[in-house]
Design a protein around this nucleic acid. Structure first.
Length: 440
RNA sequence: GGCGCGGUGGCGGAAUGGCUACGCAGCGGAUUGCAAAUCCGUCUAUACCGGUUCGAUUCCGGUCCGCGCCUCCA
């Protein structure tokens, strides 16, 4: 069996994956802050790491995959203030929508989905430990992590404390000892939500929750930690700092994987630029075709920037149309070695797709094609060609009528029926054994 | 200013020190009442300038262009 290789952000090179325990792989991916719909850029890590999860399950069997839900954050507080709705209503609604939308992209639900608000005691413990060990200090109601107390801060992002101090371009808050120090706990005032703590009523900083949840659910050191490249600094760097310093130097994760951005006209898709489209909208535009969105996301390598376009989704849809037609009535067997090797090579999904195309040329490899496609989370649909068809449309009787018209050489009527159906998005396929149809 | 990433055909997108995958689109053909689907065939690319080499898209240096991160911000 070929060995899994992973590009590790810690070392900036592709490395052979060596699990801590081959009988139990542990991975963690940063999840959403639930205050709004997820956009396609947010869906990229979900699809990428879901594919990795599928591969790991295939290769190792027992995998625990955790993805957090950030349900306490200033953006959520703002959303609550703006809409007048309670925080819990907002976070529950968008957690549900997030999971539905990601399911439509054929992403498995992670094994563990910890919520930040359920980990407040663990976070308080973590912060207390950091204070006790001399890595954090209390100032003006805040608790801050003192970056200069850690000698290898910056190992993930390649930044140095000196550079960060020199390059600070934002006004440094007065309560900080040094510019790079970051918040572990901050005070809540007025109607802001909060919890009692040794440092007063307040709430956790952004980075603290992931460290606490990983410690609580998976242990001190995990195999793989994933997320978008924009999380490398400061979020993941600070997670490492917190966890390492509270665990006397134990590594938080052996492999750090980061997916590239989804771009629009070359610029990062983001909420603040306003150039985003939500997964929810896309699923309305392409009803029943979540797999096409998924395949479009997987058609470029996960570390490369990928430009979003509806055209890419349409192209993926055509590819899936072809594979679905080819594999009708076939049963999945075992995945092909070529596809497995491509995926084991740092998740080279474009190459895997090429191999799927090779399989789709061989009548005897339909089962392999289905099993291999399943590793990428595609070709799973039972109703690919019929999703979204109005039930009031009696297609079968129209096909019968058209067959009769054709038999009596009334091609005008036959074409009329075909055109009517085409307006409903139904394409008729005349084969040697009669006529079938597909919804586009 | 600091750190990092990228530039492959009309489009998407891999790989490689020696004929540049695969898909989409296009073109020609088979098939079809006409289409669709399918099948066969086919055109188009390694940003620029040097260097190393028998040979560079690939390795090295430089130029140009695009993008990202640089702390409570996503």
């Amino acid at each position: 069996m070929s060995k899994l290789k992973i590009y590790n952000t810690l070392t900036n090179q592709k490395e052979e994956f060596k699990p801590i325990d081959p009988n139990h792989i542990k991975m963690y991916v940063c999840g959403p802050t639930v205050y709004d719909y997820a956009h396609v850029g947010n869906a990229r890590p979900v699809v990428v790491f879901d594919t990795l999860y599928r591969l790991l399950k295939h290769d190792y069997g027992n995998v625990t995959y955790a993805r957090n839900i950030t349900d306490i954050d200033d953006k959520i507080i703002d959303a609550s203030r703006e809409t007048g709705k309670p925080i819990s209503e907002i976070t529950e609604k968008f957690t549900r929508i997030y999971e539905e939308d990601m399911a439509a992209l054929n992403a498995y639900l992670p094994d563990i989905r910890p919520k930040a608000t359920e980990y407040i005691p663990e976070m308080i413990k973590l912060i207390s430990d950091l204070i006790d060990k001399g890595h954090a200090y209390e100032a003006d109601g805040h608790v801050l992590f003192q970056v200069s107390t850690m000698n290898d801060y910056g190992e993930l992002s390649g930044k140095t404390v000196a550079d960060l101090i020199a390059g600070a371009r934002v006004d440094v808050a007065g309560y900080k000892r040094e510019a790079p120090d970051f918040v572990l706990w901050k005070p809540s005032t007025g109607d802001q939500p909060g919890w009692d703590s040794p440092w007063g009523f307040g709430r956790p900083g952004w980075h603290t929750e992931c460290s606490a949840m990983i410690r609580g659910e998976l242990g001190k050191t995990i195999d793989i930690h994933g997320g978008g490249q924009d999380l490398i600094f400061p979020h993941h760097e600070n997670e490492i700092a917190q966890s390492k310093c509270s665990h006397d130097g134990a590594k938080l994760a052996n492999y750090w994987m980061h997916n590239g951005y989804l771009t629009v006209n070359g610029e990062k898709m983001s909420k603040s630029l306003g150039n985003f489209i939500t997964v929810h909208q896309l699923l309305e535009e392409f009803p029943g075709k979540g797999e096409a969105i998924r395949l479009a996301l997987l058609s470029s390598h996960y570390r490369q920037p990928a430009d979003f376009s509806r055209d890419a989704i349409k192209q993926a849809q055509k590819q899936l149309d072809r594979w679905y037609r080819f594999t009708v009535r076939a049963e999945a067997s075992e995945p092909s070695v070529a596809v497995l090797e491509a995926l084991r090579d740092d998740l080279n999904t474009p190459k895997a797709i090429m191999e799927l195309n090779q399989l789709a040329k061989d009548e005897n490899k339909k089962g392999e094609l289905l099993a291999s496609a399943n590793l990428l989370g595609i070709l799973n649909s039972d109703n690919w060609f019929i999703a979204g068809v109005s039930e009031e449309l009696d297609i079968d009787s129209l096909i019968t009528e058209r067959a009769e018209a054709k038999a009596s050489k009334d091609f005008a009527r036959a074409d009329e029926i075909r055109n009517e159906l085409a307006e409903q998005g139904i394409t008729l396929l005349d084969g040697p054994n009669g006529t079938t149809w597909e919804k586009k």
